[in-house]
Amino acid sequence: MFRIKNKDLFIDNIIAVITIIITLLFLAPYLYLFFSSIKPPQSVFSSPPSFFPNEFSLMNYINAIGTDSIVKFFTNSIIIAVLSTMISVLIGALAAYSISRFKLKILNIFLVCALITRMIPLTSIAVPIYRIVSNLGMRDSRLALGAVYISINLPLIIWMMVSFFESIPRELDEAALIDGCNRLEAFFKIILPLTLPGLATTSIFSFMLSWNDFLFALLLTSNNAKTVPVALSDFLSVYNLQLGTMAAVAILFSLPVMIFTFLVQKHIVAGLTLGSVKG
């Protein structure tokens, strides 16, 4: 018996070591980006390449923050992602509440439509959206880009929020109505606060979609409303020597996301599996 336990422990240790090595190898490409960003600008990418920095420097970050256009792109990214998330979560929660509480047939059809739209290739609708926005003369405006994000986010938000509302007993609404609230008051004062965890999860997903989007930002913006992903792509396509600045911008753009995902992973995982594993 003792021997078997020892053998098990041995296997467990080997698996632990393999797991840790694989995790580190897997994260190595990102670490490489990070280490590159803290090298002195002239030695960011050298031949032969070095993984670890030989010399520590924050010059790349100082260059990035000191560039007006880069600050503007970050401001755009933040404003568009925050506002479009707030609006789409509000609109989505209203729709989801309506779907879950007034079981109208047409609303169910709408939910299926919302699901279907999740599966349309975004490049396809990008073509007509580009034309619509151009015809309205709204290219390169934060408003147009934000409106597109709101629409793209809505189906997922509705899809997630409906299941949150379903988990709240209907009796609560009824009690609020009897107490003299109208529907909207019952929704905003009683029901919505109960779904705060759900709202947080949906907000995270909708924020991330807007924050990370590249396709629509590339199509619909040129300078004024340009967001960070497009700026990063510009660094790549126009061959320039500011590789260090680019690495710093990429880290400033993505490290908060990585740290955030690390810290609140439980909620994110709950959201991901809610939308997919459960079906």
Binding site: T23, F26, L27, P29, Y30, Y32, L33, S36, F45, S46, S47, P48, P49, M208, W211, N212, F214, P229, L232, S233, F235, L236, L243, M246, A250, F253, S254, V257, M258, I259, F260, T261, F262, Q265, I268, V269, L272
Partner: peptide
């Protein structure tokens, strides 16, 4: 830790691999 790139932007991934796979450096 392994799951922390779960929400990473595709643009950042392409940027990283552009340099990982470059044939100069």
């Amino acid at each position: 830790l392994l799951l922390s790139p779960l929400m990473l932007a595709p643009v950042v991934s392409s940027l990283i691999w552009k340099f990982m796979l470059s044939n100069d450096f």
